[in-house]
Design a protein around this nucleic acid. Sequence first.
DNA 1: AACACTGGGGTCTTCCAGTC
DNA 2: GACTGGAAGACCCCAGTGTT
Length: 203
Amino acid sequence: MLFNARWKPERIFDVLVGAGFSVETTIQDADSVRVTAKLIRTLSDTVGSNMRLLLVGLNPSFHAADAGYGFAGPGNRFWPAALEAQIVTKERDPVYALQTDRVGMTDLVKKPTSKAAELTDMHFQVGLARISRMCRWLSPKVVCVLGITGWRAALGDSRLSLGAQTVRLGARPVYVLPNPSGLNAHTNHGDLVKRFGDLLDSV
DNA sequence: AACACTGGGGTCTTCCAGTC
DNA sequence: GACTGGAAGACCCCAGTGTT
């Protein structure tokens, strides 16, 4: 791909990764930026410039990557809980959520796995840097990370807890909620609905 | 095809040992 | 005694495999 030199390589990287590409080489010269990228089996971001809420998952599951929308696993509690809490008004439709509810969706790490444990701290740290730049660029009103483990790994601080965070991303306030995956049995549907409701009150 | 069983997993809570 | 860090247990679901 060939980009105008006004595009910063970092911005090109962020956009392509968010769109589901793996960036392999970037060559910059005086008037252009040449990028080699490969489309990978992942989930693309659903983000825009007028978001009241940006939801950040840990990383897509293979199920979600194939379905084309996040939290697609049959046992995932995200969509039922988000719908009940009125975070979104239509189930399993991230584009509708962005256009109508002004809720964007992305992931800390774009590499799909069946379990977050397959990712290293470095994956989360690189992903957090990308999300931080995205927040500076798109200025969502509030950022919500879904999964305390990834958040801890990204910041290298195992003492961090759920709820409002002191750390900001692109100067936007950050909340951390439990991961809605069925694997996280510690959190039930009612708890997620309540936490989403509390989050909505802060938006 | 439908059901049962089993191992593995994310997160929180509790407990315990070590340190100040 | 207070604090910190690590280990273990509990919760409930997923995915794979075996059985009927």
